[in-house]
Structures are given as structure tokens and as C-alpha cells.
């Protein structure tokens, strides 16, 4: 476990440690906070019947998903660019240990980002979070971070075959932004599309987080959190199998180090 955390911290530090603090603030604090404000104001303008809580919590949870999905992708991009991806794959440690383990600090960081985003949103729009079930809210956010990281594993595997991992990650996060009920209820979607949204991570997590922020009891939140974790487990299994398979394909096709 100690080695796992050390690998994770070093990986995170390698990406952001050398950079200007402005980079960290810009990508992980300013961007997400403004996303929350942007969609909350759009929601206020729309007269949709949803209050600011709906948009602030939805987008805050989506930021956790952003951290989850991009965690592995960013690592892959950095490894590939520095020419060390092949070396990582022939290391004696398992790929799961190396890649999934590295995502831990990213996930913790995304929880910090979400907390800051929530704080900004609550402050600007005067959200009454005093009655919120904060413990359940934290659990819902953690569940989203984990399930979307598993989703990210799936897309990172696909990224092994492409030259631009960023595109795959952006596609994944865009699909979730549209289909997971972040800025409008999934009930507005046509039935077949709604069925897809229920198969994605984040959908139940966002519902659970909204309930928790509204002060709902644990009993109402657990089923949704459980569903989110279960979906995450399914994507993790799929992602691991696909990653292993595509890794072999990328080695065979010689696309592993394409930049």
C-alpha cells in the first residue's frame, strides 16, 4: 500500500509539481468553479423549475467525474510523450498496480476540487447547505470519483490505439455531461437514451449527491450510491480486460508510442 501511494504521489507531482502554481489554479480550480457558475446561471435564465442547488451539485459532481476520467488518460499521455510507456508496460509490477494505483492522488485531488467548487457555488448562489447530509454527500462524491475512474480505465485502453488520448477522454466526459442528468433531468431524454444514461457512471451519483445536499436520510441515498459503485465495478472489470487486450494489440500494431 505504501508503494502504491508513493507511485501515485510521484506521478501526480511529475505532472503538476514542476509547473507554475497558476497552472494548478487555472486547470483545477478556476475552470471547474466557472463551469458551476456558468451552468447555474444558464439554469436560472431557463426557468426550468430546478433551483441553483440542482446545477451547483450536478456540476460539482461532474467535476469529480472529470478528475476520475482524466486521471489515467493524463498519465498515459505523459508516459507516451516522454517515451516511457513501453518501459512501464514491461515493468515487473502489474499494470493494474502501475496505472490504477497512480490515479489515487488524482482522485483525492478531484475531491478537493469538488469541495472548492461547491464552496464557490454555495457562496455565490447562497445555497442553504446547513441542512445537508454532508457525510452522505462526501460518500456520493467519492463513489462518483471511483466509478468514473473505472470508466476512464476503459477509455484509456481505447486511447492506447489512438494518437490522441485527450480526444477519447474529452468524448467520455462530454457524453457524461449530456447524458447523466447534470444540467437537466434525464427524464427529459427519449426513453432509449435514458436507458443508456442509467448504464453510465455519474447518473446515480449525481442523484445521490442532490438528495444528500437536500438533507435526505442515508436510507434514501444508499441505493443510489450502491448502484453507482456497482456500475463502477462493472466498468472496472470491462476496462481491465479491454486495457490488457488493447495493450497487446497496440504492441502488435506498433501504435503504443504514437504521438
Amino acid at each position: 500500500m505504501g508503494a502504491l501511494l508513493r507511485v501515485s504521489w510521484l506521478s501526480f507531482w511529475a505532472l503538476f509539481g514542476w509547473a507554475d502554481p497558476a497552472v494548478y489554479v487555472s486547470s483545477l480550480i478556476v475552470g471547474p468553479a466557472f463551469q458551476i457558475v456558468f451552468f447555474t446561471l444558464a439554469g436560472r435564465f431557463s426557468h426550468s423549475g430546478h433551483g441553483p442547488l440542482f446545477y451547483v451539485i450536478g456540476n460539482a459532481v461532474e467535476i469529480a467525474a472529470l478528475g476520475g476520467v482524466f486521471a489515467l488518460g493524463l498519465i498515459l499521455i505523459a508516459e507516451r510523450r516522454n517515451g516511457t510507456l513501453g518501459l512501464s508496460l514491461i515493468a515487473p509490477r502489474s499494470r493494474l498496480f502501475l496505472f490504477a494505483g497512480r490515479g489515487i492522488v488524482y482522485l483525492l485531488n478531484s475531491v478537493v476540487t469538488v469541495a472548492l467548487g461547491l464552496g464557490v457555488g454555495a457562496w455565490i448562489f447562497g445555497l442553504p447547505l446547513s441542512g445537508a447530509n454532508l457525510g452522505a454527500l462526501a460518500v456520493a462524491i467519492a463513489a462518483v470519483a471511483l466509478s468514473t475512474a473505472a470508466f476512464g480505465l476503459l477509455f484509456a485502453g481505447i486511447g492506447l490505439l489512438l494518437t490522441d488520448v485527450n480526444m477519447v477522454m474529452n468524448l467520455a466526459i462530454s457524453v457524461m455531461l449530456v447524458l447523466c442528468g447534470i444540467n437537466f433531468s434525464i427524464n427529459a431524454l427519449p426513453s432509449p437514451v435514458r436507458a443508456i444514461s442509467l448504464m453510465l457512471p455519474l447518473t446515480r451519483g449525481a442523484m445521490a449527491a442532490r438528495l444528500a445536499a437536500g438533507g435526505a436520510p442515508w436510507a434514501a441515498i444508499w441505493p443510489l450510491v450502491g448502484g453507482e459503485v456497482l456500475i463502477g465495478a462493472v466498468y472496472f472489470a470491462l476496462g481491465y480486460v479491454l486495457f490488457t487486450h488493447l495493450e497487446a494489440t497496440a504492441l502488435r500494431k506498433g501504435t503504443l508510442d504514437l504521438v
Partner: peptide, 18 residues
């Protein structure tokens, strides 16, 4: 990395959705 934080602030103040 910096550009990641430069999208939504500009969307926000330019009235593209409200």
C-alpha cells in the same frame, strides 16, 4: 494546461447561453 481554465470564464461573460 493553462487553457483548461480559460474556457468557462469567457463563456460566462460573453452571453453565449444567457
Amino acid at each position: 494546461l493553462i487553457v483548461n481554465g480559460m474556457e468557462y470564464p469567457i463563456y460566462l461573460v460573453s452571453g453565449v447561453m444567457f
